[in-house]
Amino acid sequence: MSRTRELWKRVPAPVVDLALVAAAAVDVWLNLWDDTRLGVSLAAIGCAALAFRRRFPLGVFLLTLPVALTQDVAVAPVVALFTLAERSRNRRLLAVGVALTAVASSTPWPVENLTEAGRTMTLILFVYSLATAAAPVLFGQLVQTRRDLARRLAEIEEVREHERALHAQAVLARERAQLAREMHDVVSHQVSLIAVRAGALQVATNDTDAKEAARTIRSLSVTTLDELRTMVTLLRASGGQATELTPQPTLADLRKLVESSGTHAALKGELAPAVGTPAQRAIYRTVQEALTNVRKHAPGATACIELWQDGDAVGVTVTNTPPTRPSLSLPGSQQGLVGLRERADLLHGTLESGPSEEGGYQVRLRIPLSTD
């Protein structure tokens, strides 16, 4: 079954449309009822219009109604109804389309023959035509739902992969933060004591060799302290990748992130170049996670990313509008915002998130410049 579907997908769309036009023409030729110039012209227009059904589904449907009225055919109106149902989400429009098709198919032509056909027979034909017209609409809606579900399943898998990466990043960040604290509180403290004792020995001793040895120990201790401070800074600032061989994202990469996020997002504001690398990375990750949540929980929504500086603090606010399409209930590890709050805490900042007044959602990160 899947192999047949794959083969069907490989058929070019123009070939399918031309085949449907040919099928509708054959249907008209076999069931030609009104062979007047007007009837044939309306039938030709309705059949030819099927070639444009993908671009103008509503217009093509309206052009097939005269065919259903003047000729005893089924292919053209059924194909037009199916295309309209596959591409439209307006249930009221589809219901009106079914009713119009049923009326056109059951009304005798010319209209003067209505009295000859009888009201009972016309009513029976109307009910039969109504059921016939409802079938392609239901099938078209089924195809539309299946396509939406396939797209959402792909989004779910993408979001899961992203959440797994963020969770692993958050775990690694916590481990590095713990390692940084241990290095700062234990190793740095002990090396500082060695440097102080070596300095004291260098001043107190009169032995030249001992003084030189103390000076060397003190110099090495100071150098080691500087290297330890650098390592602690790197451990606290690292974003959680398995390796630091690749460059970490900064504010310069933010516009590219917004453009490739798959959402309708706008970036506003600027920050001074003096903002430190840890703060830039935290802002980048916050925007990345917020846009992921917009794509996951608010399909069709637009987002606004605003960079700002308030006195001695910098930050970013990501606000999205309410979704325009219903969202599926997606499973999540709930680690995305947790990881962002931990990252903000390491920089002595704050992260706030919650619904906005307009019915959307807002994420706000604030980082003090003095602790950047």
Results as ranks from 00 to 15, higher is better:
residue 120 T to Q: 12
residue 284 Y to T: 04
residue 149 L to C: 10
residue 236 R to W: 01
residue 267 L to P: 15
residue 199 G to L: 04
residue 163 E to F: 00
residue 189 H to W: 05
residue 249 P to N: 01
residue 276 G to E: 14
residue 367 I to P: 04
residue 276 G to N: 15
residue 326 P to C: 00
residue 111 V to P: 07
residue 258 V to C: 03
residue 22 A to N: 05
residue 212 E to K: 10
residue 134 A to Q: 11
residue 331 P to H: 05
residue 320 N to R: 02
residue 144 Q to C: 13
residue 47 C to S: 10
residue 218 R to A: 07
residue 338 V to P: 00
residue 175 E to K: 03
residue 307 L to D: 11
residue 361 Y to R: 02
residue 288 Q to F: 04
residue 16 V to I: 13
residue 319 T to F: 03
residue 300 G to Y: 07
residue 64 T to V: 08
residue 9 K to M: 04
residue 288 Q to W: 10
residue 248 Q to N: 14
residue 15 V to D: 04
residue 304 C to A: 12
residue 237 A to R: 07
residue 253 D to I: 14
residue 369 L to Y: 06
residue 125 L to C: 15
residue 100 L to K: 01
residue 330 L to T: 05
residue 259 E to G: 11
residue 4 T to P: 00
residue 235 L to M: 09
residue 172 L to T: 07
residue 262 G to C: 02
residue 118 G to Y: 10
residue 349 G to F: 00
residue 301 A to M: 10
residue 243 T to L: 01
residue 288 Q to K: 06
residue 169 Q to L: 09
residue 165 A to F: 15
residue 97 G to P: 09
residue 198 A to L: 11
residue 146 R to S: 10
residue 240 G to D: 11
residue 328 L to N: 14
residue 97 G to T: 07
residue 17 D to V: 04
residue 305 I to G: 03
residue 324 T to G: 15
residue 95 A to M: 12
residue 155 E to W: 15
residue 285 R to H: 12
residue 362 Q to L: 09
residue 299 P to L: 04
residue 283 I to S: 00
residue 372 D to E: 05
residue 202 Q to A: 12
residue 40 V to S: 14
residue 143 V to T: 08
residue 166 L to Q: 07
residue 364 R to W: 13
residue 8 W to N: 13
residue 302 T to N: 10
residue 268 K to V: 08
residue 5 R to H: 10
residue 22 A to D: 09
residue 130 L to K: 05
residue 69 L to I: 09
residue 288 Q to S: 14
residue 328 L to D: 15
residue 184 H to Q: 10
residue 97 G to I: 05
residue 252 A to W: 03
residue 266 A to V: 03
residue 47 C to W: 01
residue 226 D to G: 11
residue 223 T to L: 13
residue 197 R to F: 00
residue 283 I to V: 14
residue 42 L to D: 01
residue 315 G to W: 09
residue 26 V to K: 10
residue 232 V to H: 12
residue 92 R to Q: 05
residue 166 L to G: 00
residue 309 Q to H: 13
residue 361 Y to F: 03
residue 60 V to E: 08
residue 156 I to P: 01
residue 221 S to V: 02
residue 195 A to Y: 05
residue 289 E to C: 07
residue 306 E to S: 02
residue 11 V to T: 15
residue 272 A to V: 08
residue 140 G to L: 08
residue 233 T to C: 08
residue 231 M to L: 14
residue 113 N to H: 14
residue 45 I to A: 12
residue 163 E to M: 00
residue 39 G to Q: 00
residue 284 Y to R: 06
residue 35 D to G: 06
residue 169 Q to Y: 06
residue 351 L to E: 09
residue 198 A to K: 03
residue 88 S to L: 06
residue 199 G to W: 13
residue 202 Q to Y: 05
residue 286 T to K: 00
residue 83 T to E: 13
residue 171 V to S: 09
residue 81 L to F: 07
residue 280 Q to N: 11
residue 40 V to R: 06
residue 10 R to K: 11
residue 144 Q to K: 13
residue 23 A to S: 13
residue 294 V to H: 03
residue 316 V to F: 08
residue 43 A to D: 03
residue 152 R to Y: 07
residue 354 G to N: 14
residue 241 Q to P: 06
residue 194 I to V: 14
residue 8 W to Y: 12
residue 195 A to Q: 06
residue 362 Q to P: 01
residue 244 E to K: 13
residue 223 T to A: 05
residue 332 G to M: 02
residue 233 T to F: 10
residue 285 R to V: 06
residue 340 L to I: 10
residue 99 A to L: 14
residue 99 A to I: 15
residue 201 L to G: 06
residue 260 S to A: 12
